[in-house]
Protein backbone atom coordinates (compact mmCIF):
# COMPACT_ATOMS: atom_id res chain seq x y z
CA UNK A 1 0.00 0.00 0.00
CA UNK A 2 2.71 2.37 1.08
CA UNK A 3 4.91 1.35 -1.86
CA UNK A 4 2.12 1.99 -4.26
CA UNK A 5 1.50 5.37 -2.73
CA UNK A 6 5.18 6.22 -2.91
CA UNK A 7 5.36 5.11 -6.54
CA UNK A 8 2.43 7.31 -7.40
CA UNK A 9 4.10 10.18 -5.64
CA UNK A 10 7.24 9.58 -7.70
CA UNK A 11 5.35 9.42 -10.98
CA UNK A 12 3.53 12.70 -10.59
CA UNK A 13 6.55 14.98 -11.04
CA UNK A 14 7.61 12.83 -14.02
CA UNK A 15 4.25 13.30 -15.72
CA UNK A 16 4.29 17.02 -15.00
CA UNK A 17 7.69 17.34 -16.75
CA UNK A 18 6.50 15.51 -19.84
CA UNK A 19 3.33 17.56 -19.95
CA UNK A 20 5.39 20.73 -19.65
CA UNK A 21 7.71 19.64 -22.51
CA UNK A 22 4.70 18.66 -24.62
CA UNK A 23 3.05 21.98 -23.91
CA UNK A 24 6.23 23.82 -24.89
CA UNK A 25 6.44 21.72 -28.05
CA UNK A 26 2.86 22.51 -28.95
CA UNK A 27 3.39 26.17 -28.23
CA UNK A 28 6.55 26.17 -30.38
CA UNK A 29 4.74 24.30 -33.18
CA UNK A 30 1.80 26.69 -33.27
CA UNK A 31 4.20 29.60 -33.04
CA UNK A 32 6.07 28.34 -36.11
CA UNK A 33 2.76 27.78 -37.92
CA UNK A 34 1.70 31.31 -37.16
CA UNK A 35 5.05 32.64 -38.34
CA UNK A 36 4.79 30.65 -41.57
CA UNK A 37 1.28 31.94 -42.08
CA UNK A 38 2.39 35.52 -41.64
CA UNK A 39 5.22 35.11 -44.20
CA UNK A 40 2.93 33.38 -46.70
CA UNK A 41 0.45 36.24 -46.86
CA UNK A 42 2.26 39.52 -46.31
CA UNK A 43 -0.35 41.41 -48.31
CA UNK A 44 -2.07 44.03 -46.26
CA UNK A 45 -4.82 45.64 -48.30
CA UNK A 46 -4.54 49.03 -46.63
CA UNK A 47 -0.74 49.33 -46.54
CA UNK A 48 0.85 51.40 -49.33
CA UNK A 49 2.99 49.49 -51.80
CA UNK A 50 5.40 50.77 -54.42
CA UNK A 51 7.90 49.37 -56.90
CA UNK A 52 9.93 50.52 -59.89
CA UNK A 53 8.26 49.86 -63.24
CA UNK A 54 8.39 50.81 -66.89
CA UNK A 55 5.20 52.05 -68.48
CA UNK A 56 5.03 50.37 -71.89
CA UNK A 57 1.75 51.84 -73.11
CA UNK A 58 -1.83 52.73 -72.24
CA UNK A 59 -1.75 55.42 -69.56
CA UNK A 60 -3.05 58.78 -70.69
CA UNK A 61 -0.66 61.74 -70.62
CA UNK A 62 2.28 59.41 -70.03
CA UNK A 63 5.00 58.58 -72.50
CA UNK A 64 5.45 55.02 -73.66
CA UNK A 65 8.55 53.14 -72.47
CA UNK A 66 9.23 55.48 -69.58
CA UNK A 67 10.54 54.48 -66.15
CA UNK A 68 8.82 55.45 -62.95
CA UNK A 69 7.33 54.28 -59.68
CA UNK A 70 4.19 52.18 -59.60
CA UNK A 71 2.42 52.48 -56.27
CA UNK A 72 -0.80 51.34 -54.68
CA UNK A 73 -2.23 53.63 -52.07
CA UNK A 74 -5.70 53.12 -50.63
CA UNK A 75 -8.02 52.78 -53.58
CA UNK A 76 -5.66 54.22 -56.17
CA UNK A 77 -3.00 52.89 -58.46
CA UNK A 78 -0.45 55.58 -59.26
CA UNK A 79 2.36 55.76 -61.75
CA UNK A 80 4.83 58.56 -61.27
CA UNK A 81 7.33 59.22 -63.99
CA UNK A 82 10.58 60.53 -62.52
CA UNK A 83 10.18 64.24 -61.81
CA UNK A 84 6.65 64.47 -63.16
CA UNK A 85 3.18 64.48 -61.57
CA UNK A 86 1.66 61.07 -61.03
CA UNK A 87 -1.11 59.54 -63.12
CA UNK A 88 -3.80 57.87 -61.06
CA UNK A 89 -6.48 55.34 -61.70
CA UNK A 90 -9.05 53.87 -59.35
CA UNK A 91 -8.42 50.27 -58.43
CA UNK A 92 -12.17 49.60 -58.45
CA UNK A 93 -12.20 50.40 -62.19
CA UNK A 94 -9.67 47.62 -62.93
CA UNK A 95 -11.52 44.61 -64.30
CA UNK A 96 -8.74 42.13 -65.01
CA UNK A 97 -5.05 41.60 -64.36
CA UNK A 98 -2.86 39.47 -66.58
CA UNK A 99 0.72 38.57 -65.93
CA UNK A 100 3.24 37.01 -68.26
CA UNK A 101 7.00 36.83 -68.58
CA UNK A 102 9.10 38.05 -71.43
CA UNK A 103 12.79 37.91 -72.21
CA UNK A 104 14.22 41.19 -73.46
CA UNK A 105 17.58 42.50 -74.52
CA UNK A 106 19.08 44.94 -72.05
CA UNK A 107 20.84 48.24 -72.75
CA UNK A 108 18.32 49.79 -75.12
CA UNK A 109 19.33 51.68 -78.26
CA UNK A 110 22.94 52.49 -77.26
CA UNK A 111 23.66 48.83 -76.61
CA UNK A 112 21.98 47.82 -79.89
CA UNK A 113 24.10 50.30 -81.84
CA UNK A 114 27.23 49.17 -80.02
CA UNK A 115 26.49 45.53 -80.84
CA UNK A 116 25.86 46.38 -84.48
CA UNK A 117 29.16 48.24 -84.69
CA UNK A 118 31.21 45.52 -82.99
CA UNK A 119 33.50 43.71 -85.49
CA UNK A 120 33.60 39.98 -86.28
CA UNK A 121 30.05 39.43 -85.08
CA UNK A 122 31.03 40.07 -81.48
CA UNK A 123 27.72 41.87 -81.02
CA UNK A 124 25.86 38.62 -81.53
CA UNK A 125 27.83 36.93 -78.79
CA UNK A 126 27.05 39.84 -76.48
CA UNK A 127 23.34 39.51 -77.39
CA UNK A 128 23.46 35.89 -76.34
CA UNK A 129 24.09 36.93 -72.73
CA UNK A 130 22.65 40.47 -72.61
CA UNK A 131 19.06 39.52 -71.97
CA UNK A 132 16.88 39.56 -68.91
CA UNK A 133 13.46 38.19 -67.97
CA UNK A 134 10.77 40.69 -67.04
CA UNK A 135 7.23 40.45 -65.74
CA UNK A 136 4.71 42.05 -68.05
CA UNK A 137 1.67 43.23 -66.08
CA UNK A 138 -1.41 44.01 -68.14
CA UNK A 139 -4.42 45.76 -66.61
CA UNK A 140 -7.79 46.18 -68.22
CA UNK A 141 -9.90 48.97 -66.74
CA UNK A 142 -13.01 51.00 -67.45
CA UNK A 143 -12.53 54.72 -68.00
CA UNK A 144 -14.84 57.54 -66.91
CA UNK A 145 -16.62 57.38 -70.27
CA UNK A 146 -17.38 53.66 -69.86
CA UNK A 147 -14.82 52.69 -72.50
CA UNK A 148 -12.41 49.80 -72.11
CA UNK A 149 -8.78 50.84 -71.54
CA UNK A 150 -5.64 48.77 -71.28
CA UNK A 151 -2.32 49.56 -69.69
CA UNK A 152 0.90 47.54 -69.73
CA UNK A 153 3.76 47.76 -67.24
CA UNK A 154 7.12 46.03 -67.31
CA UNK A 155 8.54 45.04 -63.93
CA UNK A 156 11.58 43.18 -62.67
CA UNK A 157 11.03 39.46 -62.43
CA UNK A 158 9.07 38.59 -59.30
CA UNK A 159 7.68 42.09 -58.80
CA UNK A 160 4.71 41.39 -61.06
CA UNK A 161 3.46 38.71 -58.69
CA UNK A 162 3.66 41.12 -55.76
CA UNK A 163 1.69 43.84 -57.56
CA UNK A 164 -0.88 41.31 -58.69
CA UNK A 165 -1.29 39.95 -55.17
CA UNK A 166 -1.69 43.48 -53.84
CA UNK A 167 -4.35 44.25 -56.43
CA UNK A 168 -6.17 40.96 -55.77
CA UNK A 169 -6.11 41.76 -52.04
CA UNK A 170 -7.79 45.03 -52.95
CA UNK A 171 -10.57 43.20 -54.77
CA UNK A 172 -9.43 43.00 -58.40
CA UNK A 173 -10.21 39.83 -60.35
CA UNK A 174 -7.24 37.85 -61.61
CA UNK A 175 -9.14 34.86 -62.88
CA UNK A 176 -7.30 34.20 -66.08
CA UNK A 177 -3.84 35.45 -65.20
CA UNK A 178 -2.53 32.04 -64.14
CA UNK A 179 -4.12 30.35 -67.14
CA UNK A 180 -2.43 32.85 -69.38
CA UNK A 181 0.97 32.17 -67.88
CA UNK A 182 0.51 28.41 -68.23
CA UNK A 183 -0.83 28.78 -71.74
CA UNK A 184 2.12 30.89 -72.80
CA UNK A 185 4.74 28.59 -71.38
CA UNK A 186 3.04 25.64 -73.08
CA UNK A 187 3.10 27.50 -76.36
CA UNK A 188 6.76 28.30 -75.91
CA UNK A 189 7.59 24.67 -75.15
CA UNK A 190 5.66 23.60 -78.22
CA UNK A 191 7.64 26.11 -80.27
CA UNK A 192 10.92 24.91 -78.82
CA UNK A 193 10.08 21.31 -79.69
CA UNK A 194 9.38 22.18 -83.34
Amino acid sequence: MNRLFVRRNHRHPYFDGRALIGLCGLWFWFGLGGLAQSTASPVNASAPFSTRATHLLGLENTKSNCDGTLSLQGNELQFQQDGKPSVELEITSVRHIFLNEESKQVGGLPMTLGKAAAPYGAGRVVSLFAHKNYDILTLEYIGFDGGVHGVIFQLSKGQGDLVRNELVARGVSSSSGEDQRTKQSTAEVRRENK
Binding site: N100, V148, G150
Partner: peptide, 21 residues
Protein backbone atom coordinates in the same frame (compact mmCIF):
# COMPACT_ATOMS: atom_id res chain seq x y z
CA UNK B 1 -13.64 46.87 -80.42
CA UNK B 2 -11.31 44.73 -78.34
CA UNK B 3 -9.21 42.24 -80.25
CA UNK B 4 -10.68 38.79 -80.76
CA UNK B 5 -7.86 36.23 -80.33
CA UNK B 6 -9.69 33.68 -82.47
CA UNK B 7 -8.02 30.28 -82.36
CA UNK B 8 -4.61 31.67 -81.46
CA UNK B 9 -3.00 31.65 -78.02
CA UNK B 10 -2.06 35.31 -78.23
CA UNK B 11 -0.99 36.80 -74.88
CA UNK B 12 -3.38 39.32 -73.31
CA UNK B 13 -0.63 41.91 -73.31
CA UNK B 14 -0.51 41.63 -77.12
CA UNK B 15 -4.30 41.91 -77.42
CA UNK B 16 -4.34 45.01 -75.23
CA UNK B 17 -1.34 46.47 -77.07
CA UNK B 18 -3.03 46.04 -80.48
CA UNK B 19 -6.22 47.66 -79.13
CA UNK B 20 -4.42 50.64 -77.60
CA UNK B 21 -2.10 51.11 -80.60
Amino acid sequence: DRVDPGESDLAYSFQVAIYEN
